[in-house]
Design a protein around this nucleic acid. Structure first.
Lengths: 158, 158
DNA sequence: CTCAGTGCAAAGGATTTGCATGCCG
DNA sequence: CGGCATGCAAATCCTTTGCACTGAG
């Protein structure tokens, strides 16, 4: 019921690249082919990707450069790093490019899927988090919420 | 305003060790001195600890054994592993031994502090998470919620 | 032209594992 | 006693870094 939306330079993709370019420029970085390809790889997936995932999608990118670029893009607020414990870190586009969401993390295979909660729940959550943060003299930046469990695929294997 | 509660074999500590012993026995593991010490180290701290933290508290424990035991205890549901990205993983006692809570993660120094939310918020959250999990044919086990930001100490350093 | 970005290979650091020995049950 | 648990050292795995080279602005 969904199509991958890969190469055609649709409107969304143009917006995305304009956004990335601006963020990179602001930090005096260049939007090189490699970075372009990296952003496309992340944008082309509905799930957060690991480094092997990314290199599998774009095999001509050197792993070390991908890591370096992920760091640059993370610094610019274009990429978000997810560390769920199982070996490799996962990466996805950051909030302005991907709407706010959370993750279903499979404890068996390590795959991560996106989920969105009702705005109303998010709002309540943020209110309470800000409250407890204030109590602890903690200056909040963002929250992460994930649900661990067994994904559909891994349930079938039992 | 709080005291460490270290060595005296108070009632809580007895309960804790009874619980751990049972969990270990169920999986045909032994509750050795080293494991006892490890549990004590975790129980004696108000924050999740890294491996260096643990070895600093109990210097006679070998790092490799601590890692092995943390894994065994994690499998038995006695220990919970927290991977917040910054180098070392953090470890704390698991839910039956520590009441349900979440974490304030400092993006500067990596320290983790515990916070609790109102039951009402937790309940609402669980309801919604179960809902979205069901929609994704995902079998939920537990949720994790953390707030990233700057801890009091690191705010002062700016 | 120039400097940031790249690729390769090598280093780094947290965690895991092999193996001989020690100790719990 | 017998096998799980331990300690040390070496190995592993993901990620980062050094360096010479290439390409974007």
């Amino acid at each position: 019921m969904e199509k991958p939306t890969a190469s055609p330079p649709d409107e969304q993709s143009l917006d995305r690249h304009a956004f990335v370019l601006e963020r990179l420029s602001n930090d005096n970085h260049r939007y090189t082919t490699g970075r372009h390809r990296l952003v496309d790889a992340l944008a082309g997936s509905s799930k957060p990707l690991t480094l092997p995932d990314i290199v599998a999608i774009a095999p001509d990118l050197a792993a070390s450069s991908v890591y370096r670029n992920l760091e640059v893009l993370e610094q610019c607020g274009v990429v978000k790093r997810i560390t769920s414990g199982s070996g490799h870190a996962h990466f996805e586009l950051a909030e302005p490019l991907l709407s706010h969401h959370h993750h279903l993390v499979c404890v068996d295979c390590g795959e991560i899927e996106d989920v969105r909660l009702d705005d109303e729940v998010e709002e309540l959550l943020d209110q309470h988090l800000n409250m407890v943060a204030t109590d602890a003299s903690f200056k909040p930046l963002r929250h992460n919420l994930d649900l661990q469990g067994h994904c559909e695929k891994c349930q079938d294997l039992l």
